[in-house]
Simulated assay, not measured.
Amino acid sequence: MAFSVLPQLSSRISGNFRTKLILNLISVYILWGSTYLFIHFMTENMPPLYMAGCRLLTAGLILYPYARLTGHSRPTRQQWYSAGLIGVLLLSVANGGMTMAIQYVPTGVAALLAGMLPLFIMVLNWLSFSKVKPTKLALAGLIVGMIGIGLLVKPGGFQATSTESWLGIVIIMFCNLSWATGTLLSGHMKLPTQIISSAVQMLVGGGVLLVVSLLVEPVSLFSISHAPDKAIGALIYLIIFGSLIGFSSFAWLARNAPPQLLSTYAYVNPVVAMLLGWAFAGEALTGQSLLSALIIVAGVLLISLGKKKQKAAV
């Protein structure tokens, strides 16, 4: 009798896991795709590093007590250090840098360039971490992706490729490098449980951003009281949906989903961001920008397929 229940129980567990997997994927696809637009709204009239620091630190101050109250153990000093370092790379540098870059480039362009993250992970892993040469398919994806970027940033690719927009492009490339480093490094460090790790990353990452903001931006700790309603609304959205839900979904997927499936957010986020930027921020969608978007997404897809073949061969 007991044995007859096991297949049903296994099927139920499998079904629950599949549902959780789909919900977390939708969360990362849609919510993270929308964050570019809301970062634009949040920083239209407020300093970017200050608002990014407020967003992440507030999310961490909510998530950490919740995690402790729901039974997750306190991280050790080593785990604080490890998660904090990842938080600086992913959130202080990459997220904070992206918040700055959106001051100089349209949100859809920022999302497209951020979508090249798998390229950075592949090259960095090849040169510094695994020392494993990518497959020919992945290298083809690298070339295709670079062609797409070149088409995007050349004149006519988006509204204007000015000196300021080039600054935004360079910042995003550096953000990709920092995020790729943090992603690869996290697999070699002793981290606490998923939710505690996310909370510590937000606390440290947001805290560092706030300190830097107080040093370089014309703000005080209480400048948030002067923020317009639109900025406050966008900040609340980003805290709840971008950080607490979106980042936690990404962290869950990073630990439970196949890497090839997780990497698909890099194809979807730019499409969501470009459509939202066009619909709500008046950003232009030129034929050249749409073509470059398709080429970049194709490049990222080839890289992911190349990784899959490499793992199958191993």
Rank of each mutant, 00 (worst) to 15 (best):
V200M: 08
A266W: 07
G141Q: 07
G182R: 03
T286F: 07
G206F: 03
G33A: 03
G87V: 00
R255P: 12
I143M: 12
I26V: 09
V314C: 13
I295L: 14
G207M: 04
G33M: 01
S223M: 03
F222R: 13
I13K: 13
C54A: 14
A279Q: 09
G187P: 13
I236P: 07
L89T: 01
M46G: 10
A138I: 01
P118R: 02
H72C: 11
L294H: 10
S248N: 09
Y29L: 02
I39Q: 05
R255N: 14
G148S: 08
T70E: 10
T264H: 13
S248W: 00
V109E: 02
I196Y: 00
E283K: 02
G96A: 03
T35K: 07
P218G: 04
V204W: 03
I295A: 12
R255G: 13
W252V: 04
A59C: 02
S292E: 12
L139D: 03
V109F: 00
E164N: 12
A284F: 10
A2V: 15
M202D: 05
P192S: 11
L9G: 13
T181E: 04
S11W: 15
F247H: 10
L9Y: 12
G15T: 06
A110G: 04
G156Q: 10
H72Y: 06
V28D: 05
A298R: 09
M98T: 15
L61V: 13
L203W: 02
A140C: 04
G246N: 01
V88Y: 04
S34A: 11
N256V: 08
I22M: 10
F241D: 06
P270Y: 10
G233S: 12
A313C: 14
P134E: 07
T135F: 07
S10A: 15
K131G: 02
S34L: 09
I232Q: 05
N176D: 11
L61R: 06
N256S: 10
L119A: 11
